[in-house]
Design a protein around this nucleic acid. Structure first.
Lengths: 152, 152
DNA sequence: ACACAAGTGCCAGTCGCTTGCAATTGGCGT
DNA sequence: ACGCCAATTGCAAGCGACTGGCACTTGTGT
């Protein structure tokens, strides 16, 4: 699959909102689906499909399929920090963008509006509406820069 | 594997430069290795390992291993546009960064210095030295924005 | 409470690599 | 020119992250 084209993002502040939106899109609320939504709602950060499957004792296939359906309908999105699996978050439930440091393999969150100047700049210069929601920003964090002054 | 930590990037303007650097790093110039370097040197854009293996009639494993070794020693780098395989380029042989549009699944190249203001902004705001060399910038291109005015 | 499409479990398959290991070979030292 | 030996290769198997097929089950509008 490729990166999902931009899909309308519905903001959810409770699971019930998400469930309502899900119904509005003609999706059913199965047991599995509810568990996935709840887990994502409760999660402190983005979660991989594999992690969800394990934590919820669900069969991975079903988790993948649910994530795919929910993302296709704009209830979820996923981000990649570095290489590795997609990490899912409920939309509208504390939106973040991420900066990932390959040195220490950690990501910090960034409030989306703080990147608006960057988006505006790129829009003006290149005409593209970039978003950092699918691939994290990648760069050396200050700590790693201090630890490894050898780099270029 | 994770994203390679920043490695000194040696600029090559001919294959011989690359071969010299390779020797300086204690790597041998095997048949396979030479073919890979030549193919990358001749390529108009970044190339996947699979593509190289097919075009050069080489066994994929060997291509992967060569790409890995050459990248580790700073002769190559790879970028991801959207999902999909890593795409390799010889370092110092027409450096580009990329903006990828998920709508039309195409990337345009950007002269790196044009993104310097963005890098400076992020450095000031967050302290990170970001680079767009591993993950492409992702965003809707003007054409796709015009075609699909429905998006948020 | 039924019908029937949406969703599930299971199993096999794909894609993009990675690893182990025995056979080969490039590039010195002589 | 020859030999040595670690670097490299080919082959086969394995792995992580999904994806697809298919028969079975279940949520839901009527």
């Amino acid at each position: 699959m490729t990166i999902a084209p931009e899909v309308p993002r519905l903001p959810f502040s409770s699971i019930d909102d998400a469930i309502e939106a899900l119904r509005a899109r003609g999706l059913r609320l199965s047991m599995t689906r509810e568990l996935v939504l709840e887990a994502l709602f409760a999660a402190p950060g983005p979660v991989s499909a594999e992690e969800l499957a394990v934590r919820l004792a669900l069969v991975p296939t079903s988790v993948y399929r649910n994530l795919e359906a929910l993302e296709r309908h704009g209830l979820l999105r996923h981000v990649h920090l570095g290489h590795g699996p997609g990490l899912y978050t409920l939309v509208g439930h504390g939106e973040h963008e991420y900066i990932y440091c390959p040195g220490c393999r950690t990501a910090r969150t960034v409030r989306p509006e703080l990147l608006d100047p960057v988006r505006r700049h790129i829009k003006r210069r290149f005409g593209y509406e970039v978003r950092f929601t699918h691939f994290a920003l990648v760069g050396q964090c200050p700590r790693c820069a201090a630890d490894a002054p050898a780099c270029e």
